[in-house]
Design a protein around this nucleic acid. Sequence first.
RNA 1: UGGGAUGUAGCCAAGUGGUAAGGCACGGGACUUUGACUCCCGCAUUCGUAGGUUCAAAUCCUGCCAUCCCAGCCA
Length: 553
Amino acid sequence: MPNNFIHDFIDQDLAEGGQYEGRTVHTRFPPEPNGYLHIGHAKAIYIDFATAEKYQGLCNLRMDDTNPIREDVEYIDAIKEDVHWLGYDWGDRFYYASDYFEEMYGYAIELIEKGLAYVCELTAEEIRETRGTLTEPGQNSPYRNRPVEESLNLFSRMRAGEFEDGRMTLRAKIDMNSGNINMRDPVIYRIAHETHHRTGDTWCIYPMYDFAHPLEDAIEGITHSLCSLEFEDHRPLYDWFIENCSVPYIPRQIEFARLNIEYTVMSKRKLRSLVEEGIVDGWDDPRMPTISGLRRRGFTPQAIRNFCERIGISKVDSVVSHDFLEFCLREDLNDHALRGSAVLDPVKLIITNYPEDQTEQVEVQNFPYKPELGSHEMSFSREVWIERNDYAADPPKKYHRLYEGNEVRLRGAYIVKCTGHLEDEEGNITAVLAEYDPESQGGKAADGRKIRGTIHWVDVNAAIDSEVRIYENLFTVKEPDVSAADYHELINPDSLQVIEHAKLEPWLLQPEFRDSTFQFIRQGYFVQDNKDSTQEKPVFNRSVSLRDTYRPE
RNA sequence: UGGGAUGUAGCCAAGUGGUAAGGCACGGGACUUUGACUCCCGCAUUCGUAGGUUCAAAUCCUGCCAUCCCAGCCA
């Protein structure tokens, strides 16, 4: 992991005289179980876990479940699966913020006893009205200076369930004049008669994030609590709680910029609505930036980790280009994906001088620059499927594929010379015609003549039909999150293109290849859909296309 | 108008007083049984801007400008 400003801070903290001299670096990834993880979280996960690794420290996984109104067990297993899939392990340090509710309650009492917190009976609306604005200070609550005993009594009755939701809150007594609105007597406990997924009905008061989070970190002995930029002005509050509660450890919060990527959204709210409105096929739709979506799309954990490493860590608001994400995937897949043949938009090529009832086996490499990965056979006969756009009746300049009179190599098989095409009454091309050079087995000309074009093909007699799904960006603009328009208007209507009958060579469909991503030669990288693909009706997703620098004039 | 942050190429991003790393994208070339990959070459006389300090400034100082975050009993 390259160095970055966070590591500079850690180095200082660890150095002689630093605040964590002699300590083990301890980070945490604290998702709220209220949705699925997305690639923005992957960046945070990478930073938290890879930083711990770099310093031979530890990283905890913690469910930040302090608000039962929003959270659900449904998400917990998915979050664990995603973090593991990305390649990170939290050992036996899987925690829930809710495990600390009793301790937090104790710290709240401590604050009350110190005169640093009070039970406030203002309504939510009154609190808002007295909070002031960005430019005007707030006003003190009339309950601010009530006796400690009274707050203590009321707080225990809040816990006992004597009051309905919203009737009162516990507030920190800090400074209603602070320029930092977070310091204007923030609410630290609210009443919510709500069943919690873990603590059930044990509690009807729940701590707020600003109060809970520093305590969670302190209780777990976290040294560096890494979070995103919007918490920067919560840091004084974070430190205030750490200073005023007698916690066992002192954690340090450091903020970094969250990840944005072109042509997609990262807010849980919008992702959820895409799912709920049926615009996509669930949280794991291959067009979603969720970890499960990327997995289904065919991304590898390595590609995602490389991406996270290379975008860097800084405090600059940025939008990473979509190209870069694709580059990281291609780079990894290029080096790992076995090569196979598939024709996505098939048209027949008839080799008129090849015997009608003959079939032969030709050998093709599984991986061009890694011969140790072996080879496999493809059957070849008089009729093979080729891509419709590998033939041109009227070829543009510098077109190296099939057109009348031109020679092309059928990859791994033979060199063929195009002799024209067949068409129906409407002028649609129904087949391409060619003659093969029997002396060119394997695609090598006996006389050594150079053949410029090589195209892929699949034997008509052997081809297996498969559905292939081609994905494009979900949104039509680079930054849908910042657009003023309703995001529904920005959705790309062509983000999913379904090809019903692509022609695949049978080798691709061996059961042991079920979860492997392949390169379909000259097309891109494809993986079987982890939900819909079956042996009877295979379904492939295009993970990413190959780079294509061909520019017809 | 208060508070907190951030401005280095089209996009990320190093740089911490000694004369602008790297990656993506892009352009050109070589190689090629994937128009892929790989390999070469090119791509900021300038660091938001205006001044100042210094032999020397992206780095230090001052002013200005732009952008982002904060007024949940969300996280």
